[in-house]
C-alpha cells in the first residue's frame, strides 16, 4: 500500500469512527439497566434467571449456544466433506493443509500420549478440541436470544454454564474409563476410579476459566462507558487465550490419563505357596 492510499484509508477509518461515536451519543441516554450488576453476575454464574423455552422445555442459554455451535460446526464439516475432501490432492494446498493440520494435531496428541491405543482417542480429542475452541469463541459473536421474561440475552460460551462443563468433564472421564476397560478390562475401571477427583477437577477447571472470562466481559459491558476500546483487549484477546488454553488443557489431560489407564498392566507373579523343605531350612 503506497502512502497516498494509506492516508486515504486512515481518513476514511477515522471518519467512520467519528460518525459512529456521534450517532451513539445522539441516541441519547441508553436505556437503564433492568438488572443490577449483582443480578447480572449472579445470573452469569448460576443461569437461574434467564431461561429460554424450546422444545417444550426450559433451557439455559448455554444449550441454545450448543445448538448454534453444533449447527455451525456440522454445516462447516458437511461443506468441507462435500466440496473439499473429494478434491484433496497428495500435495496439499493451503486449505487442505489447514484441515489436515487440525486432524493431525488431534491424532498426534492422542498418539503421543497413548501410543498403544489412540484411534478413538484421536477422534474424541478432535471433537472436544473443536467444541471448546469454537464454543469459547462463540461468545464473541453476541448472538441474541429471547428469554422467558421477554428480555434479550447474548448467548454465552456454553462452557461458562456449570452444566455444560460438568457434561464435558464427565464425558472425558467416561472416555478415559472406556480406555481403561479396553486396555485392562475390569482392572481398568479400578485404575480410572483411583482418579475419582478427575471429573470434578476437569469440570470446574473449565467452568472456572470460562466463567472468569464471562464475568469480566459482563462487568465491562455493564457500563456503556467501558464499552469502547477495552472490549478489543478484554473481549477478543482474553477469549482467544481462554479458547486456546482450555482446549489444550482438557485435551492434554484426557489423553494423558487415557494413555495411563489403558496401558496394559504387567501381571504380578503369583507368590509360591509351597512350604520350604526342611533340608533348605537346615542349610
Amino acid at each position: 500500500m503506497d502512502k497516498k492510499k494509506k492516508k486515504k484509508f486512515l481518513i476514511v477509518w477515522a471518519a467512520v469512527l467519528v460518525v459512529l461515536l456521534v450517532l451513539i451519543f445522539l441516541m441519547g441516554k441508553p436505556a437503564a439497566n433492568t438488572e443490577t450488576l449483582q443480578d447480572v453476575m449472579k445470573d452469569g454464574v448460576l443461569h437461574d434467571h434467564n431461561k429460554i423455552k424450546a422444545l417444550g422445555m426450559l433451557m439455559n442459554p448455554s444449550v441454545i449456544a450448543d445448538w448454534w455451535i453444533m449447527g455451525i460446526l456440522l454445516a462447516a464439516a458437511a461443506l468441507i466433506r462435500i466440496f473439499a475432501v473429494p478434491h484433496f490432492t497428495e500435495v496439499p494446498g493451503k486449505f487442505q493443509l489447514a484441515i489436515e493440520s487440525l486432524v493431525d494435531l488431534a491424532d498426534g496428541l492422542a498418539r503421543q500420549n497413548s501410543p498403544h491405543r489412540h484411534k478413538f482417542l484421536g477422534a474424541y480429542v478432535f471433537f472436544a478440541g473443536s467444541y471448546i475452541f469454537f464454543g469459547t469463541l462463540f461468545e464473541l459473536f453476541g448472538i441474541q436470544a429471547i428469554t422467558t421474561t421477554g428480555a434479550s440475552v447474548s448467548l454465552p460460551s456454553p462452557l461458562s454454564d456449570i452444566n455444560a462443563a460438568i457434561a464435558l468433564g464427565c464425558l472425558s472421564y467416561g472416555v478415559i474409563m472406556s480406555g481403561g476397560i479396553a486396555g485392562n478390562h475390569v482392572k481398568g475401571i479400578g485404575l480410572t476410579l483411583k482418579e475419582f477427583s478427575l471429573p470434578i477437577s476437569m469440570s470446574f477447571r473449565l467452568f472456572g476459566a470460562l466463567l472468569s472470562g464471562l464475568l469480566v466481559t459482563e462487568l465491562v459491558y455493564y457500563s456503556i462507558s467501558l464499552s469502547f476500546v477495552i472490549p478489543v483487549a478484554v473481549g477478543i484477546m482474553f477469549t482467544l487465550m481462554h479458547a486456546l488454553i482450555q482446549t489444550y488443557v482438557l485435551t492434554m489431560l484426557t489423553t494423558v490419563f487415557y494413555g495411563e489407564v489403558s496401558l496394559p498392566q504387567p501381571k504380578k507373579a503369583k507368590k509360591s505357596k509351597a512350604k520350604p523343605k526342611a533340608a533348605d531350612i537346615a542349610a
Binding site: 460446526l73 464439516a77 458437511a78 468441507i80 486432524v103 477422534a123 478432535f126 471433537f127 455444560a164
Partner: peptide, 17 residues
C-alpha cells in the same frame, strides 16, 4: 449437553475426522 455432544462427536467424526 451430553446429547448435543453425542451428535457433534458423531457428526464431526463421520463428516470430517
Amino acid at each position: 449437553h451430553l446429547f448435543n455432544f453425542a451428535i457433534l462427536f458423531g457428526g464431526l467424526y463421520l463428516l470430517l475426522y
